[in-house]
Write a protein that binds this DNA or RNA. Sequence first.
DNA 1: CGAGTATTTGATGCAGTTCAACGCTCGTGG
DNA 2: CCACGAGCGTTGAACTGCATCAAATACTCG
Lengths: 242, 242
Amino acid sequence: MATKCTNCPLKRRDLFTNMSKDDLAFMEKFKVGELVIDPGTPFLMEGSNSPQLYTALHGMGLRHKTLSSGERQVLNFVFPGDFIGLQAGVLGEMGHSVEATTRMTLCVFDRSEFWTFFKHNPERAFDLTWLAAVEEHFLGDALMTVGQRSAQEATAWALLRVYQRADALGLAQGNVVRFPFKQRDLADALGLSLVHMNKTLRRIRENQLATWSNDELKILDLKRLAEFADLELEAPKKRPLF
Amino acid sequence: MATKCTNCPLKRRDLFTNMSKDDLAFMEKFKVGELVIDPGTPFLMEGSNSPQLYTALHGMGLRHKTLSSGERQVLNFVFPGDFIGLQAGVLGEMGHSVEATTRMTLCVFDRSEFWTFFKHNPERAFDLTWLAAVEEHFLGDALMTVGQRSAQEATAWALLRVYQRADALGLAQGNVVRFPFKQRDLADALGLSLVHMNKTLRRIRENQLATWSNDELKILDLKRLAEFADLELEAPKKRPLF
DNA sequence: CGAGTATTTGATGCAGTTCAACGCTCGTGG
DNA sequence: CCACGAGCGTTGAACTGCATCAAATACTCG
């Protein structure tokens, strides 16, 4: 049997806002099960109208969309605690695909119950909108990065964001976080060719800013990396969990 | 005195879903006035915590953010009916700035009342989330464009999107729509230099795909333009008005 | 008419792409 | 236990789409 929300492993993470007992009970009714998927498996498809929505409990994944010519754009990386499928829930159609890159376990909700949130639990409805707004905020940043920053700046920005997100989740061990992706994934996220991604990572390594190999990202000089990326270091804000 | 929602000029546009009498009355209490601003005036600033939220009634504008180095990324163009300030309303801080490019009139709401939506009017709360999801969807598209499409494809994509949006609003006169922006604006939206934007527009003109001058965008060959942009032509979906 | 802003065009340079090849690590099967 | 191939990372060389530089031509408005 799936874990109850009361015992949700994410609930203990400092990053997330606390949920009232009532809300927890409410969420439990909403949860229909847990899903474990293997690396490389897509579980939401662009254009699909999925009956299920998810919250990532363990593991990592990525959101992407593909041009008919085959070019892939990675929109974002999926971390534990991320809510997946908002577009399907609200618009009835996903604008991008989502797939697991590590083994993942997902908390599964039923889309048909979506509306009851808004009807019966305004706090939770607000939280959903909050999450949508955060995603919009992030995509704006990403767009600015791909549009205006150089390959090195963009890469520095991306590595830093990854570190910050993982750190906020309590997943960092000192200056090291797990980042189980391929150079191809990051290249597709930043609109760079694989070859140039590789060369850019080398320069960042040579500049003693950060290293990334064997799925491990190590930040060597946070401050210089941040300056370089033109990114301000700020304390992570608490976010609601779904 | 400002127009009542009952007489809102946008309400008559086919694009928007109909609002019940009750909802209209509800919105009227929420509305605190109308604001008319001159071209070139910014009215929401990145990082600010605006006490006001807006819906564009007339005119056009753009959302953008700026790197400390001065590079500007245009995130989106603002059309009549667009809701502006969701991030301020939900997150308490805007992730981008918004400014008028033509004279605009805005319907003004009070942010402090925001929460009452979720509490007392779940339909309207859902609509808000719907809008947030649509924005997320669009930004994903834009990111893919800037990241993966060539300058010509990206430009074709952008011109087509602009035409589609204006057409859906009933603002098109045949194959012509008003598009009161500078080449610099579109360049900053697509991550291109001004010079290259100009040269790209020339090629699109020479290929008899579209022309854009004097704030007027004319689509010459919709089908070929769409193929070229790798964009599917689809009927616009009705959207809620705020 | 003159000053400021926007568009246009040509020339030159470079950041990033594309092509090609090699090495490393692992899992698989003989 | 080794041979083999597939996937990923790495590196060099050649090429090009787009940026940058520079300057001329319209357009707008006091």
